[in-house]
């Protein structure tokens, strides 16, 4: 594979063409914060956490959806980026109703981890306190909209990997919600196969199996990527 040279955080690197900035950073041990990215799924650039600065480009670009190009000079940890990441994580918390102490994901939640990483010691934005449903109609799983960050990992895992297309997004702006079928209760969906892929793909306590108590949630989001890799090998 042809190589190109790039500079990331003042380090010169020779990397393969055709990869995203995020892939290159991961391979080289450079940490980038992500939320909507999940290995095995198409990147959509929804969460805006993986923003990087590229010399000569006057706006921040998302590392997960931007392909690396020759001679790029990339910075991943500038003050500006850190400021934006902190704002983004505050907005996640302000947008829905997160009460970590009673959450199944407490201690194992990617959103909680993000809060620590961005040193979010308080939230400067007014909480929206939206009215959110908790859908307990599925025999095994629960979807709690209070804890959803609209990363759409569940939507993509269900559509791209399971092929069931149970999930999608309805409405716009602050009224967006994850839906199954025609905004049908999950348990009445005609497309859901109950495979559980969305449960593992979800980075928060928004989707969880019923047979779990507070703080006991074990998710394995990496199984999505592993499954996709194994399918490629079988071909």
């Amino acid at each position: 594979m042809p190589k190109i040279s790039v500079t990331i955080d003042d380090k010169k690197l020779d990397v393969d063409v055709g990869k995203t900035i995020l892939e290159v950073c991961k391979e080289n041990g450079i940490e980038i914060l992500t939320m909507c990215h999940l290995k095995g799924l198409t990147d959509v650039g929804a969460c805006r956490l993986c923003l990087v600065e590229i010399e000569g480009v006057n706006k921040l670009l998302s590392a997960c959806t931007t392909k690396i190009a020759a001679n790029m000079i990339i910075r991943t940890k500038t003050e500006k980026i850190k400021r934006y990441q902190r704002i983004t994580s505050e907005l996640f918390f302000a947008e829905r109703n997160h009460v970590c102490s009673v959450c199944v994901a407490n201690g194992k939640c990617d959103l909680q981890k993000l809060g620590y990483k961005t040193e979010m010691n308080h939230i400067r934005y007014p909480y929206l306190f939206p009215e959110c449903n908790v859908d307990t109609s599925h025999p095994w799983y629960v979807l709690d909209h209070n804890r959803c960050i609209m990363c759409t990992r569940c939507v993509r895992a269900c559509g791209e990997v399971e092929g069931a297309h149970n999930w999608n997004v309805m409405n716009r702006g602050y009224q967006v919600r994850i839906i199954s079928d025609f905004d049908t209760p999950w348990g009445e969906s005609v497309t859901c196969t109950s495979c559980g892929k969305c449960v593992h793909a979800c980075p928060t306590g928004a989707i969880w199996p019923k047979a779990i108590v507070q703080g006991q949630l074990e998710k394995k989001p990496e199984i999505i990527g592993e499954l996709v890799e194994k399918r490629k090998m079988n071909l």
Partner: peptide, 20 residues
């Protein structure tokens, strides 16, 4: 539902489009 069936689309995609 009639349109969804005729076009063989996932219901959630149709609903998503309509509400957008």
């Amino acid at each position: 539902k009639f349109i969804t069936k005729a076009l063989h689309l996932p219901p959630s995609r149709v609903y998503s489009t309509v509400t957008f």
